[in-house]
Design a protein around this nucleic acid. Structure first.
Lengths: 152, 152
DNA sequence: CTGCTTGCAAAGTGTTTGCAGGCCC
DNA sequence: GGGCCTGCAAACACTTTGCAAGCAG
């Protein structure tokens, strides 16, 4: 659990390309944030990203990191997930063969650990909810909670 | 949508009984919070509960409401759901024939509206996740996000 | 009476915003 | 060089906590 099967990230250069395509400027702060996210498989909180970005771009400010994350999320380069009790976590939007490969998240209410839930698990639910209720789920933002196997 | 089919609340007296059963004191503040939650079908935020509780128990303090909600949640009388972007919402734990009747929530990222998602929709997912990953979902806390039919 | 609960105020956490200056393009 | 982006500080929304007084059981 937690290790999705052979997934590929967009990569730093790909992210930079996307920035340019959207007439967004490529700045040290944004590069730093992208590097931080690109070099880990974990889901990082804003505070962690700030402290790690500080290493790549000394003096970068919290507010700037938040704005960079906001921009990157709007462009789809980064995905954020709201985690109960501790703000949001961010990660590079995973892609498989060039298309977004959404995954959901499972959070353990006991130990707080966060697990990836491959999109396949949610497909039936997404279809049912859309058909019956007209509501279009965005599985990549889903944050399901429960008890993980270790904590039971 | 938003109107669950014939669901019954635990009721004020039932909630009071539960408090006593757990050696918790029955205080004006707790009664006020329970009344507020018991008299609406909506999911109320902490701020709304505070202002409504003020009517039932003048002078009741924010912190007290938060503590009451915390206690009631621990006892299972109240259920809270984390909503992206605006804290938690609370509601009386719905019961059907005396047993908890969990439901999940759908939040529209566009208009912010919150919809109930009957537990039935989630059962297959709950089973699959538990069987394949050993993770036991708690559907009543689930907060799925997406776009509602009106906003599409 | 005993000690759980409350009111109060203050601190804490996570995030956003207004503004002047700086750097990308 | 124009205007987006940044740093700074302050504000912001929401929630929690320490303490002394109060009330439920």
């Amino acid at each position: 659990m937690g290790s999705a099967p052979r997934r590929r990230e967009i990569g730093l250069s790909g992210a930079v390309d996307l920035l340019r395509q959207h007439q967004q400027r490529v700045t040290p702060a944004r590069i730093a944030v992208l590097k931080v996210l690109n070099e880990t498989a974990d889901h990082l909180g804003a505070a962690e990203i700030v402290s790690q970005a500080e290493i790549r771009a000394p003096g970068v400010h919290r507010a700037t990191v938040y704005r960079a994350l906001s921009t990157l999320c709007e462009l789809g380069i980064v995905t954020h997930t709201h985690v109960a009790g501790s703000g949001s976590v961010y990660h590079i939007t995973p892609t498989v063969d060039g298309t977004h490969h959404a995954h959901s998240h499972l959070q353990c209410t006991s130990c707080g650990a966060l697990f990836d839930l491959p999109a396949e698990f949610l497909l039936p639910l997404v279809r049912t909810v859309e058909r019956d209720l007209g509501f279009r789920l965005e599985p990549q933002h889903a944050a399901l909670v429960g008890i993980c196997s270790d904590c039971r």
